[in-house]
Amino acid sequence: MTKQELALQYFPDATSETAVRHLTRWIARCYPLAQALAGTGYQSRNRTFTWKQVTLIRQYLGEPATAS
């Protein structure tokens, strides 16, 4: 899943750039999530998430309101 797709699920009323910025900030501010993602090889400049990374994000941040 692209970072943009996931970010827009969490921030559906934002532009794609703003949504990505917000999601990246949320990840950085949630230290346990950032550590868990780092363990999967995630780096903030990545443009896509693996299924494991998406699962971790949803585990720590909750399901987005617009999740399909």
Rank of each mutant, 00 (worst) to 15 (best):
Y10S: 07
A34V: 00
A36I: 00
G41P: 07
R25C: 09
R29P: 03
E63C: 08
A28T: 08
L8N: 02
R58H: 05
I57L: 11
L56A: 01
P12S: 07
A28H: 11
L61S: 00
H22D: 05
E17L: 12
Q43I: 15
Q4A: 15
L8S: 06
A67K: 09
A14S: 10
A34C: 14
T48Q: 14
E5Q: 12
E5F: 12
E17A: 15
V20D: 03
L61D: 01
R45P: 01
L56G: 05
L8H: 03
I57M: 08
W51K: 09
R25Q: 11
P32V: 00
T55M: 13
R21F: 07
A14H: 01
A38W: 04
T40K: 13
R45C: 12
E17H: 12
A38K: 13
Q43V: 15
S44H: 11
P32S: 09
I57N: 01
L8I: 06
T48W: 11
R29K: 13
T66S: 06
R21S: 10
A28L: 10
T2P: 01
E63G: 03
A36T: 06
L6N: 02
A34D: 08
L23K: 00
W51Y: 09
I57E: 02
Y10V: 13
R58T: 10
W26V: 02
R29T: 06
A34E: 10
F11Q: 01
T40A: 14
R58V: 02
L61Q: 03
T24Q: 11
V54L: 13
V54S: 09
W26Y: 09
A14T: 03
H22R: 15
L61F: 00
I27T: 03
L23Y: 04
K3F: 02
C30Q: 14
Q53P: 05
T48R: 15
Y60P: 01
T24K: 10
Y10K: 10
L33F: 04
Y60W: 10
K3D: 03
P64H: 02
Y31M: 15
T40P: 01
T18I: 12
Q59K: 10
W51C: 10
Y31V: 11
T15M: 05
Q59H: 05
W26F: 10
T2W: 05
T66Q: 07
Q35Y: 06
P12I: 06
G41S: 13
A34M: 14
F49Q: 04
N46Y: 01
Y60T: 05
W51E: 13
V20P: 04
T40Q: 14
K3C: 07
T66R: 04
G39P: 06
W51G: 08
D13Y: 12
G62I: 04
T15N: 07
A36E: 03
A36H: 00
T50H: 08
S44R: 13
L6C: 07
L23A: 05
S16F: 00
A65F: 04
A38D: 12
